[in-house]
Design a protein around this nucleic acid. Structure first.
Lengths: 339, 339
DNA sequence: TCAAAAGTGTTATCCTTACACCCATGT
DNA sequence: ACATGGGTGTAAGGATAACACTTTTGA
């Protein structure tokens, strides 16, 4: 790709040595909880991190490099994989490293069916709301947000000009909604970035020495090494968004499942509760599933039909997905957690 | 980001030297046509290419590096910028380069308001359908697709097993639709990748020495250097998709515009025709525009109200955009081209 | 018998699509 | 007068969201 070099004006500015880190957000849903695979912490490594490794000559494609590293580090082999974003800003680098060999991380989202519990190494599955407690609205508005609200307002009112204060208030309204209403579950990354900027989140303080407004709020979740929590936020946002127009949830489901299991998986990802009868109709009317003929036994109630994903849906609809919105009342299922 | 190095198992495999290329797809809409800014061709550079340059130490952020390069090469300063994808597979490198210092390109989408015609350098604006003639359905089904169809079927029927043939037929149906129906304007990248794989497109033959099924079909559009046509396809796909749930079109419009101009911009991007009365209602009902009070004169008919983008729409709707679908009949406007 | 989950019916409302039609200006 | 684009009315059909209600199991 050097052939066009001459076309530019001042090209020979000396490209710095760069290392590429391939980083994976590996997601599964078990027992109606969204889980993500992390490594550590260990000696000499204070924080947990996502599986990741440098791109080498032996990797023909970026994705192949990612799969190789993940398998080596976690024993997990990946099915569905999708590139998320490339992070490479200076100044957000881990201070320990220094800036000398610049590192870019290319983040990936991977979906797997079963968290085969840590066969290899120190890989462990964690509920992803451990890192984003404010993102789980399934049991109602999370209390941690109460702690954020004064910090957010203080930041808004600390704007220099009237215009800036207005912009800040608007930004808060868009990302976090107005106290409880207008919550948009897709804006995971926007919320993390705002929290990072304001200093709600531990990483803000680690990354820069300058004083931030807020002193790392209580309930701001578990931090990860480097940019990894940002990458995780990107993954959750992408997955929540994509669910709505592409049948990605099924990558997380076993070959046969009940409609309730499917609903709980969607709820787990989106962090909201859904209306059961309407959810079922949505799924069936979109033609996303078909009968297997089998039924489950002993789920604590009437046996449920087992269904499977119906691939033909891809041909029939331009955007086959689950365009869901939170139920006003708790119209879903009774007890959650252990399914 | 080296702090977690120890957490992995066999990390020290020697990361190869890598060059990062920042590549921009710069889009504008003028005279109801979608345009993209390219460089060349020139001496020693047979093909056109997108503005791009290597990431250097001086670039604090990737985006800032991109802006700097684009401004140097084209004189164009960028407004809205969004990262698209990072391309880095070996084997798709330009053969001239060889593989030694591996190059990744990070593709960006930029939207600008006015193609201030090539003040600097050799930058020129081109209709983007020059590179993707099959993507413009505004005047009905493009004839070039007739030429593709036999090639696609031949490829499908050349599958080894019955299963593979079925998979291939399905893939064709999803990406290109069944002869004219089921066209999904968002699947620009899928179509390019299929065309590349089959050999419809010139790049397939340039990149690999192996014989392909088809000998670079007629009407397969103008090729670009390196991965650039793929990056352009990614940009168009992203833009077509994003229009539906985010008000990005307005980044391409002047401060005040008529509803017809807006419709023509959307049609230009999506490559389909829309139903005029319904489009207007959609826009107004979504609250995306507000009156300026002014009207246009002499547009060949009754003077039109000039409207502007209404920022408050962002606060009111979770996904403010123009969820459009092709009109069955030509219900739009009369003559196109010169607006 | 009751709790728990599965599953059906029905309605009001909104959004989408298509059709038909009128309005205001320039040539 | 008529062409061109601007703009409104409205009705059919489909998708949603909320409501209430029945069915089938296990403890």
């Amino acid at each position: 790709m050097k052939t066009r070099t001459d076309a530019g004006s001042a090209r020979q500015a000396g490209s710095a040595p760069v290392t590429i880190d391939l980083t994976a957000v590996i997601v599964a849903v078990t027992d109606a909880q969204p889980r993500v695979l992390t490594l550590g912490p260990s000696v000499g490594q204070l924080l947990e991190c996502l599986p990741s490794g440098p791109l080498t000559r032996r990797h023909r494609t970026l994705e192949q490099g990612l799969r190789t590293w993940v398998e080596a580090q976690t024993g997990q082999s990946l099915g569905y994989v999708e590139q998320l974003y490339t992070f490479g800003d200076l100044g957000r680098q881990d201070p320990a490293t220094g800036d000398s060999p610049r590192t870019l991380s290319i983040g990936y989202l991977a979906l797997v069916r079963e968290p085969r519990s840590g066969s290899a190494d120190a890989a462990t599955w964690h509920d992803w709301y451990r890192y984003f407690p404010w993102e789980d609205w399934r049991k109602g508005r999370p209390e941690v947000i109460d702690g954020f609200e004064p910090i957010l307002s203080r930041w808004a009112e600390a704007g220099e000009t009237a215009g800036e204060r207005h912009t800040r208030r608007e930004r808060i309204a868009v990302t976090f909604g107005h106290h409880g209403s207008n919550w948009n579950e897709d804006r995971v990354l926007d919320r993390y970035e705002l929290a990072y900027e304001i200093g709600i989140v531990a990483e803000s303080h680690r990354d820069d020495s300058g004083a931030r407004l807020a002193p790392h709020a209580a309930g701001s979740g578990v931090a990860l090494a480097g940019d990894h929590r940002r990458i995780l936020a990107t993954a959750i946002a992408r997955l929540r968004g994509k669910t709505k127009y592409r049948p990605v949830v099924f990558e997380l489901m076993p070959p046969a499942f009940t409609l309730l299991q499917l609903q709980q998986a969607v709820e787990a990802l989106a962090g909201i509760r859904l209306h059961k009868p309407n959810f079922r109709r949505l799924v069936e009317q979109q033609g996303l599933v078909e009968e297997t003929g089998a039924v489950t036994l002993g789920t604590g109630g009437r046996p449920a039909r087992l269904v499977r994903f119906r691939r033909e849906a891809l041909l029939e609809r331009p955007a086959p997905g689950l365009r869901v919105r939170a139920a006003r009342k708790r119209q879903t299922t009774g007890v959650r957690g252990k399914a």
